[in-house]
Design a protein around this nucleic acid. Structure first.
Lengths: 239, 239
DNA sequence: ATGCTAGTAAATGTCTGACATTTATACAAG
DNA sequence: CTTGTATAAATGTCAGACATTTACTAGCAT
């Protein structure tokens, strides 16, 4: 893979890092491949070597690349990628051609983890958490009917699940809320959007909310699993 | 807080980053505090501005610091720290005066997550995973008797739990294995080391191993929770 | 032929100094 | 009291030279 297919960018090192990261996440380079050298990147994008080094430093700290003096820059195995780095989530969001293996892995994680998180949320949620959950749910309701509000609906969806992670009141679980946006966004494209699907999804979300409000951990856990089950089946994670 | 209490270091930017990170993780600066400026750090440790910038860039990408031109460098809230960054785990290991709030949060996470992970491991473990688990368990057995092998025993302990995460065969769960070392190491100091405690712990680990070997997800999940319960009670996470 | 040993080229890592940009502060004018 | 401007101080960026690590090559000796 060469650089030539990548578009020039406008902004600074952030933008450059994002551009390169997204190419990597889409699978344009294979693990073990040699990544282009600093100078080539610099001349292609017409930026200083410093910018390139800053950008590559970010990709390296996200586990995407391995750089060693003399050898060059190498693409690391997907299992070494720091999927939980917030920067990664930022890079993944809106990427329509995200590696399917990744989409599946992240969703499988959510399918196993979110029931636990919902249970914790039911035990630990305070008034502010519940207000956030309710606001997100109402947003989902308002945007469920029109096809034009699809993007907004997804945002409220993200907000609802993120509020659940926040409500767990655990520093580690809270970090994982970052994974939600790319995971939910990646599925918006591939799924059908019949109205009854939305209605069904809404009522399942409602059950999670109600269980958390009444502090019923077991019910929240069960309901959270039901929210994710249909898509889990579609992805072949569970049968 | 000033720099003056920190020892000079030997190595390069890695070492410097580690030094500063550990001071932050121990709570030497409060969230919102202004961190020393590049030049001061450089003169104190007698390194170039480049090294300082590289080190600070790592702390920034770990969510520990927030840097903006003109204002300076500020310490971020603990809730913004990227606890799941592998670098963070590296910095935390062996830190005897880790912030107790962090120790508790990480253990609470494990207490809720590891039952799920063990369940997944029971479903997905292959021969190599089971070999790793058995090797780790045997190591724990061998080092359980002598007080001199305490450090080795902790290493095998880490290996056992990490092997469980690996056996889940999920890219996201696998990343979280990094948290195990600091979590387990932080507890080695505070806990009593009576022999019957070790025996008890060993038999609980054995039940996890056996459940995974016979592919019994529910039993593995239950057993994993039993492994963690005693410490969870000691830390006040559950009663 | 095989294996060892320079030697060389090419890549990333580091240092230095100058300059750019952003932010907070002080001070003066309205 | 508010607004605007000048100044200082901090991080951000650039450019060039040099250092270090690594892989490859050629040549020599066994």
């Amino acid at each position: 893979m060469t650089l030539e297919t990548l578009p020039r960018h406008k902004g600074g090192a952030d933008e450059l890092a994002r551009l390169l990261a997204r190419a990597l996440l889409a699978g344009h380079w294979q693990p073990g491949d040699i990544f282009p050298k600093e100078m080539d990147i610099g001349t292609h994008f017409d930026v200083s070597r410093n910018q390139v080094r800053n950008a590559l430093a970010r990709l390296t700290s996200a586990g995407l690349l391995d750089r060693t003096a003399g050898r060059g820059t190498q693409v690391r195995e997907m299992s070494d990628w720091h999927l939980l780095d917030p920067l990664m989530s930022e890079w993944m969001t809106g990427l329509t051609d995200l590696d399917p293996q990744l989409t599946r892995a992240i969703y499988a994680f959510r399918f196993s983890a979110e029931p636990v998180v919902a249970g914790l949320a039911a035990e630990a949620a305070d008034a502010a958490d519940i207000a956030r959950l309710e606001a997100a749910f109402e947003g989902m309701q308002k945007t469920a009917q029109s096809a034009a509000a699809r993007a907004q609906h997804a945002e409220y969806d993200v907000m609802f699940h993120d509020a659940t992670y926040q409500a767990s009141h655990n520093l580690v679980w809270r970090q994982m809320g970052h994974l939600l946006r790319p995971s939910i966004m990646a599925l918006v494209h591939g799924s059908q959007h019949r109205t009854d699907t939305f209605d069904d999804s809404l009522s399942r979300h409602r059950r999670v909310l109600e269980a958390i409000v009444r502090r019923d951990a077991e019910a929240a856990s069960f309901a959270a699993r039901e929210v994710l089950r249909r898509t889990a089946i579609d992805l072949g994670i569970v049968n």
